[in-house]
């Protein structure tokens, strides 16, 4: 099976998942207890407003045709009208997307920068003191609520020593880099335990491989051995682990954007929840799902392109 066929196959596999994602997002409205329109609009809703929403969402039609209506609008880029702002939800979400994407990429880079050295330190002397210390990191890290870590970082590095702003997005590339360091670091800290664990294990496997023994017996210096042989072969599993946890990475931004007041779609989601702005919450949920599906696709494709050992027959 050639490269093109692999890409096509992977794209085809996307279809059922994408359809499933839209079905779940569509069904959100039917999880609302009672009459969705009445519940969303609150007790002071006029019968007319309720009737308008009913017609807009097609609630008076059978389920299948409701879904068709939803999909027809979706394919035209229409996520419905924001109940709070009275503008199309699509525009609101697209305007907020850059900040979220920034945070996700920044956090992924920081997570790698934090995890790779720590995993190398641990793997370089298995069962040594340093290994035990690094292995304790995930034990403590897994139980840390990300928003709490964010608050503590704000207290320590933004209020106490004033190195970073307390909140906000900054302007320009340098401004983003500076203003979003703490939020990105917070997400990275939440992600690091999982990555460190996987990376350490994969490095230990690589260290046991025959080509490493060969390189050692040839007298390759330790530093070169680690950088050229171990790291290169261990990074692919690390990228895979990041890929598997991309949902966690992206989901973490919902929480963190609200702690640091970053104008991304995560903040939009929580704000819309408090404004009971159902179409926007629904739209953001869909965009998050699509984002994860696309990033996973990208990871799979680049993985196949980067690693010559990946074969295209399955």
């Amino acid at each position: 099976m050639g490269r093109m066929a692999f890409v096509l196959r992977r794209l085809l596999m996307l279809v059922p998942v994408a359809v499933g994602v839209t079905i779940i997002v569509f069904f959100m409205i039917h999880l609302i207890p009672g009459d969705p329109a009445r519940t969303i609009l609150g007790i002071h809703a006029t019968p007319r407003a309720v009737a308008i929403l009913h017609r807009q969402w097609g609630l008076d039609r059978p389920l299948v045709s409701q879904y068709w209506l939803f999909m027809d609008r979706l394919l035209h880029g229409n996520l419905g009208q924001s109940l709070y702002y009275g503008v199309p939800a699509t525009g609101l979400i697209l305007g907020r997307l850059p900040a979220t994407l920034w945070l996700v990429c920044y956090a992924a880079v920081l997570a790698v920068l934090v995890s790779v050295p720590l995993a190398m330190i641990a793997a370089s002397r298995k069962d040594g003191i340093r290994d035990h210390v690094v292995r304790a990191v995930p034990l403590l890290g897994l139980g840390m609520p990300p928003f709490w870590v964010g608050i503590l970082l704000i207290y320590a590095l933004a209020i106490h020593v004033r190195w970073f702003p307390v909140s906000g997005y900054g302007t320009g590339f340098g401004g983003h880099l500076h203003a979003m360091f703490l939020p990105a670091l917070t997400v990275a800290i939440a992600l690091a335990p999982v990555v460190i664990r996987a990376l350490r294990a994969s490095m230990l496997t690589v260290l046991g491989a025959e080509y490493i023994t060969t390189a050692r017996s040839k007298g390759v210096p330790r530093s070169r051995l680690f950088l050229r042989h171990v790291l290169r072969n261990a990074v692919i599993p690390a990228v895979t682990v990041l890929g598997i946890n991309i949902g966690f990475l992206i989901g973490g931004t919902v929480v963190i954007e609200n702690v640091f007041a970053i104008p991304g779609i995560g903040q939009l989601m929580i704000n819309s929840i408090f404004q009971r702005d159902f179409p926007v919450v629904q739209g953001v949920t869909l965009v998050f799902g699509v984002l994860v599906v696309l990033v996973n696709l990208l990871a799979d494709l680049s993985y196949a392109a980067l690693d010559p050992r990946v074969r295209f027959d399955r």
């Binding site: 989901g251 998050f288 799902g289």
Partner: peptide, 21 residues
């Protein structure tokens, strides 16, 4: 396939959205 669809959503996003509705 159902598993693939559910894991397509970030954990926190789906939990928060579900609790909201």
């Amino acid at each position: 396939r159902l598993v693939d669809i559910v894991v397509a959503f970030p954990f926190y996003v789906l939990i928060i959205a579900l609790v909201f509705v």
